[in-house]
């Protein structure tokens, strides 16, 4: 297991698990919640086929610790640097060419929700709670959450962000930013099963090809997007044919 800032990560079989661990609420003390270089190295070294992000204990993450954020804000350049690093981490997670699933227990607020939104799929426990409380504190989500939620919900995102209202898992699913509510008490186990159904018996190459193409689907240039898909397809097809000959 590797420790970095308030996170740790480990590999179980082909699947990587990133755990947020910072007291009971898993506060994100600082926006750059892990060492990106270390994390990148681990992802490529371990050749994992999927990544699950969870909060250790009863909560995913309650987001930023407001008192600490106020302290950080005293030095504007420093804060802005840290925010950019946080964004870089989430962009990296979102662009990963393996599926990334958030396994969400308890509270998932602010920065915690921003991490969850950077994942490709969100699985929540029945009793999970979601909110962007930033506007209550004179702020807005700062790690790409406005953008990502609007991508998922369209204009319905405005109300959720501006009211700062808390919603339960069922409401989050209905709104459309939670894909599954765990059918068992053990959300992490359910997320693991879901991940296994997607990546077991698939080579890393197939997974990466599929995810590259899917990640590219928001490319508004459809000709380019379709070209990439065909190229990825052909690269795999050549191998399939060679294997059949052998």
């Amino acid at each position: 297991m590797i420790q970095s800032n308030i996170t740790s990560w480990e590999t179980k079989g082909d699947i990587g698990i990133l755990s947020i661990s910072n007291g009971k609420e898993n506060y994100l003390t600082e926006p750059d919640f892990l060492d990106l270089d270390l994390f990148k190295k681990w992802i490529s070294d371990e050749k994992i086929k999927g990544l699950i992000i969870r909060g250790l204990g009863r909560n995913f993450s309650a987001g930023a610790d407001i008192e600490n954020l106020k302290k950080l804000a005293e030095d504007k350049t420093n804060l802005s640097g840290k925010m950019n690093k946080g964004k870089e981490i989430l962009n990296f997670i979102e662009d990963l060419t393996i599926p990334v699933v958030a396994s969400i227990n308890g509270v998932c607020f602010g920065g915690g929700l921003e991490i969850a939104l950077a994942c490709h799929m969100r699985i929540a426990s029945e009793r999970a709670l979601f909110a962007f409380p930033e506007t209550n504190h004179g702020l807005i989500p700062g790690l790409g959450g406005n953008y990502r939620l609007t991508q998922l919900l369209g204009k319905r995102a405005y109300e959720f962000i501006l009211t700062a209202d808390m919603v339960c898992a069922a409401e989050a699913k209905k709104l459309g930013f939670v894909e599954y509510i765990s059918e068992t008490k053990d959300t992490f186990h359910f997320a693991m099963q879901k991940m296994i159904s997607m990546v077991s018996d698939r080579s890393l190459e197939i997974i990466q090809s599929a995810m590259k193409a899917i990640n590219n689907s928001n490319n508004s240039n459809r000709e380019e997007a379709l070209k990439l898909e065909t190229e990825l397809f052909c690269n795999l097809a050549v191998n399939v044919k060679f294997h059949q000959k052998e």
């Binding site: 197939i206 193409a213 590219n216 689907s217 065909t230 397809f233 097809a237 191998n239």
Partner: peptide
């Protein structure tokens, strides 16, 4: 993907949309 390929005729682009 069950036989070593990915959808190659618009599926990976259209389905996510």
């Amino acid at each position: 993907t069950t036989f070593g390929l990915i959808p190659g005729c618009t599926g990976t682009y259209v389905l996510p949309r």
